[in-house]
């Protein structure tokens, strides 16, 4: 009922559900094989038969986008998961221990935040080797710094709450207080932030794949789909534009839903 008053949110949520379904069972949505093309049908513009047209090998681009969702979304989700976990632990330790250790940790975090995330990811991928999972780790490390900073500030806030002191006065051990009171109460803003970060991560993963650091052909992935259409932009612009539109739509939808999640809390 209340969702109906926010049509943007409703559309975003439905779209995301469809994308998630495509990640789980791509065959539900795909109209053709993502890997095998028909040579006679190459470079066809969008039509009823091939919604997004076909590429230079006669493969259906729409089906490749559907199958590509799995790698793109999974790599982005993994990136956020790693980023949040690492950032939360670092922030928790820094905030809880305090003093010189806090100072040392946070200066390292400052360095991570100072370097642009995409550059950091490039460095990581270059040293770990190409592929979707090293892209995920790279993006994760780029995001972990800001998660650590937010977590630390939340820990500092919660640590001064009266119920934390009260728990100490009850005789609860410090470690237990940290895990049972400080962590749950500090993690809420970090989790809202993680949802927002997912959109950015999808974009970063696609960007790195576009640059050729992601999965190698013929595996479909959003960023590499855009990249492979690049050579034909003049003659077959749909090859790059339509996958690009899908990426933009997914990122916008994620941001809209994440914004709502953050607001409702």
């Amino acid at each position: 009922m209340r969702l109906l008053k926010k049509p943007g949110l409703l559309v975003s949520a439905i779209f995301l559900l469809l994308v998630l379904l495509a990640v789980a069972v791509p065959s539900l949505f795909a109209t053709h094989s993502p890997l095998e093309g028909v040579a006679a049908e190459k470079m066809l513009p969008p039509s009823a038969e091939h919604w997004f047209g076909t590429d230079h090998l006669g493969r259906d681009v729409y089906s490749r986008v559907v199958y590509g969702a799995r790698l793109s979304v999974a790599a982005a989700a993994l990136a956020v998961l790693i980023g949040v976990s690492v950032g939360a632990v670092v922030g928790l330790v820094a905030g809880a221990v305090g003093g010189k250790i806090d100072f040392a940790i946070m200066r390292v975090v400052d360095v991570f935040i100072a370097v642009p995330g995409i550059l950091l990811a490039l460095i990581v991928v270059a040293s770990l080797g190409f592929g979707p999972w090293s892209v995920a780790v790279g993006v994760a490390l780029g995001a972990a710094g800001s998660f650590a900073r937010v977590m630390r500030s939340q820990v500092l806030r919660v640590r001064n709450e009266e119920y934390v002191e009260a728990a100490g006065a009850l005789g609860v051990r410090r470690g237990t207080i940290l895990l049972s009171h400080v962590l749950p109460n500090a993690s809420r803003p970090v989790i809202s932030m993680a949802a927002l970060e997912l959109g950015t991560a999808i974009l970063s993963v696609s960007a790195l794949s576009f640059l050729g650091f992601g999965p190698q052909p013929p595996t479909p992935e959003w960023g590499s789909l855009v990249a492979s259409g690049r050579e034909f932009v003049a003659t077959a612009p749909w090859l790059s534009i339509l996958p690009g539109v899908v990426i933009v739509a997914v990122v916008l939808a994620v941001n809209r839903v994440a914004q709502q999640l953050g607001a409702s809390k």
């Binding site: 119920y163 009260a166 728990a167 005789g171 009171h181």
Partner: peptide, 22 residues
């Protein structure tokens, strides 16, 4: 000190602050 807490307990002024809301 922790064992002493068993014998001496504290009740705070602000019942809104001294209980973990979660």
């Amino acid at each position: 000190l922790r064992q002493l807490r068993r014998r001496i307990q504290v009740v705070y002024q602000n019942p809104f602050g001294s209980l973990d809301p979660r």
